[in-house]
Design a protein around this nucleic acid. Structure first.
Lengths: 195, 195, 195, 195
DNA sequence: GATGAATGAGTCTTCATTCAT
DNA sequence: TATGAATGAAGACTCATTCAT
């Protein structure tokens, strides 16, 4: 009577979904969103074009899903006790895990920055990026205020630039960019004794 | 009556070419390369689609030309006496004029970073970017060596990250990014007294 | 425990079949044949896509079946004693029940006329329509001959036009078309005293 | 300097546009709107798919154009002096030219009724059909009022049904439908002496 | 019998590029 | 030189139909 069990179906669906997202992330990141075709994703994921539309409403929605999951992953180590306040240790821990995630999720970061830059694409995922990004930014900003930095605005902007710059450089040439040493340098920069 | 002189013709040709490049730069930067059509460039430049192909072989070649000219412009203030060596003042001047050019040529920089990030597009302009970029990078690196920085590699990578990061942040939100104050902060960072 | 009897199974099958046909009729009539998808029929009938193919060979065969059943229903009141001859009363009764069925089976009629008009679709159901339609037409024609109308051909054509026209108008705007009054008008038209 | 003259271009454009409309009308009428593909129109018009989009924004807009032109043509003989009032002669003339146009523009009428019936299509051209249809209907209705028919509403509905019915029958089987004789019959019907 | 994941051909539409004038 | 009509390949998306379970 009953065809495939619910559990079986759920398993298949989740595996397929992840398979599509992984392939799409890699292709979007390396070739661009508009430059990657659904056919290409299907081909590389080893499935048919049509099947993709059983799992996602549109090419855009794949991107949105990708961003949403990436953002969740990206900020999971941020402000660990979720009190909206960053201690110095939490601040350093954030920087450290940010640099670590660059290594671990290079493909996502490539995608993230490619999208950040393309107005035609950013509009598609603005909501996803904003919902995560804004709280992080404001907590970081607050950190500089709370710690009595002379010019918290500029400090925040500077840190944001460094973090973006490191990311963009590393994702494009990981073999020439030594994150561990750079991490140390940043640590020194934000060591209270030298503030 | 009198047929135009060769010089006149050349003048017209160059003007048209520049007109096409300017329009293309603006559109590529604001809407993306693949999202900008030749028709759109023609329309906004006030000429016909066909005419563009009298000046450029293809859409790609417009992009290549654009990058080539942009790079020339971008590094024209670098190492002013072309001795391959950067004095401290020349170093600061480079940073300063780099930040200035971000303001003046925001459109080009938008394009530059969008392209930098997409390997599939970068291949089209790799030659142009390399031929200009490598000497700059090696001279900067040499600066840190010559000035006996502890770890010139890391210093260079860090500076490169800062400059890229500033650019990418400023490009995307110029109203929230205060380049003048950031310039000061960087100056302090590289002030010998604090090395 | 006891496996279902053949009769029970047959009952289920017929119920399912009717359920599919009803849903399909409603959707085909309201959205068009090509605009209605098998998924939609399945969803609205509360069954799975695949199951439809246990009952019908194809989407087209659903339409064919629908037309066949509709035609049967449509002419069941025609020439009640099946003698191939229409008395005046039978003639009026036919007109009356035709108008009544427009009200009762508006959905089917919508479908019928939509199909009637599209030769490319009519081919799919031609056989069904012909096998029912032709006898009706010839009996009607005979009625005008038997009753010594001046020009039976034209009379028949005229009546056919009226009946089709009433249908098409009523189907599309039942709230603006008053079948009862129109029925009276037609009755008068065919009242022998005014022939 | 100047490429093709303006006149030449205009000539080409108009010819092409008409060529596309003619082909589309024939195909839409005979196979249905949704069932006709742009490729098919292009193929039968002897041009490329892409070219169609130089002349029309979309498949829908072809249909809209078609309806608009057809409506204009269709009502050009209606209420010739445009005073909003139909004399008896104008009334008969309208019926006569309506029947004539059925012969002359059979393809358009096929399209018109096919569309009238399909809810999925009628929405696309509602505006075009309403803008012409409503004034005509109200003037016809007024004719029956002005001429003191017992029940103008029913008279109007009846006439509308006859005209639609004649059309639908004729366009589907012109060889079996004798418009001239039917015209005479209708004339008699509306001859004042028999009112 | 019943399910729904999977397929792939087909649809509308866009656009870089060519070419007659 | 300059135009824009014309082409055709490619893209996102839909859907009838199949089939393993």
């Amino acid at each position: 009577m009953t065809p495939k069990t619910t559990a079986q179906l759920k398993g298949i669906k989740e595996a397929r979904e992840q398979q599509i997202l992984d392939t799409a992330c890699r292709l979007f990141a390396n070739h661009g969103f508009h430059e990657t075709s659904i056919s290409q994703i299907a081909r590389e994921a080893g499935i048919s074009k049509g099947l993709i539309y059983n799992y996602f409403d549109s090419k855009e929605s794949i991107l949105r899903d990708l961003m949403k999951r990436g953002m969740d992953e990206m900020y999971k180590d941020f402000d660990p006790n979720h009190d909206g306040i960053l201690t110095h240790d939490e601040f350093l821990f954030f920087i450290s895990s940010y640099l670590d995630t660059l290594k671990e999720n290079r493909e996502f970061w490539k995608l993230y920055f490619a999208i950040l830059i393309q107005p035609s694409v950013i509009n598609l995922v603005q909501e996803e990026m904003m919902s995560m990004g804004i709280p992080v930014f404001s907590i970081l900003h607050k950190y500089f205020e709370d710690n009595h930095y002379e010019d918290p605005d500029t400090e925040f902007e500077f840190l944001a630039a460094i973090l973006s710059g490191l990311a963009i450089k590393y994702i494009n040439a990981p073999e020439f960019f030594h994150l561990d040493k750079l991490k140390e340098k940043i640590y020194k920069l934000y060591n209270p004794s030298q503030k």
